[in-house]
Design a protein around this nucleic acid. Sequence first.
DNA 1: CGGGACTCGC
DNA 2: ATGCGAGTCCCGT
Length: 451
Amino acid sequence: VRGGGAEPDGQLSLDEAEAPADPAADARLAWELAGRQRELIEEFGLEPLLNEVEMPLIEVLAAMERVGVKLDAERLAEIGAGMAERIAQLQAEIYELAGREFTIGSPQQLGVLLFEELGLSRKRRGKTGYSTDARVLSQIRDEHEIIPRIEQWRELTKLKNTYLDSLPTLIDPETGRIHTTFNQVTAATGRLSSTNPNLQNIPIRSEVGRPVRSCFVAEPGHLLLSADYDQVELRVLAHVAGEDVLREIFASGEDIHTATAAEMLATDGREIGPAERSKAKMINYGIAYGLSAFGLADRLSIPREEAAAYIDRYFQRFPAVQRFIDETIERAEREGRVTTLLGRRRNIPELRSSNRQRKLLGERLAVNTVIQGTAADIIKLAMINCHRALADAGFATRLILQIHDELLFEGPETEIERAREIVVGEMKQAFDLDPPLQVEPGVGPDWLAAK
DNA sequence: CGGGACTCGC
DNA sequence: ATGCGAGTCCCGT
Ligand SMILES: [Mg+2]
């Protein structure tokens, strides 16, 4: 689609004013491009991925967009009203403590106030001035009463502006539901993305944000079914690396982060508590993202030597992960690209960079793309199979959202338990992974309750 | 209009 | 100096 349309997601508008000036030229362009793309697809061996995954997925995504998801606008408005009061109160207190009015939402003005006028500790600098991000604010929280109020103001205005005020305006008057657009081709790893609105970043982690999620509801007589993969990226890592110790942890059904902590930290018989689990969790995820000793030290607030020792210990316990990372990078350097389990391909020109920082970025991209991209391959297969299996069973349960490792369905309460069995089976069998895929289903009247 | 800072999700 | 996205606001152009 040529640029110039009003819709940010590229959807066609029927406004005559926005009709393409030369539709025949556009059609010839698409034809010409298709021919060239087909050659490359064949050359790269991408036909199976195209024909078995991406093409069949198109109608699944179209159906999801068409069905949409129901939003309880009244409940959303109630939450928003309470929040507006609290924001106004916070704003007044912030001005009072600042001794003047200013634009709280301007990091630049906020930096001047905090670090010049109030003399609080400067932590990090960005490109343009003092950083005032959430990490900095939490570090100086005890230095001035204004800080916790600014933190709360940030959290509440974010929720209100991005979700509470915006989502109701996107309810389609025809259907009374929200219809996102899933983009199949924007993410470099093969993930989907969601726009207008983005329904892949609805709050769940914070206490105040969580009620927003409960505003996504099932129709009367229906229920929502949420099914998410348990630790899919770490299972993919264990599979592609062939790491038997990691496989055994998954086979035992233990909590992966607690077990990793035990492997790494408890050799002297120390107890594994929440602090140890939290460290292991950061390392587990960090490995998949290419975390360095420097980065880990920063996040755990420990010396770099100690962080390096943790990482060494991790690779001692999981040596196949170390080999996988090294071999993935070496191969990517030779070939200039990586591929996922289903053959999805990403060029990584950063690996040929003479700039050290850029080269290291290339190494992280190489490893992460294999893991994240393979997980994306798997859930796409699951979507196709769930969609087909539910249709074959004659069920009215519909797939409505994908959130990277989670599928959300809506269906009549009379069939939802049978739908759950179909969905869990299809998701688990989507790919023959070792360790096996595990799926955690939940059912409820709203999205929060279903998790 | 676009970049930067920030924050939401996985 | 840990990956992938999107939306909002501010601010300079
Ligand atoms: Mg999960």
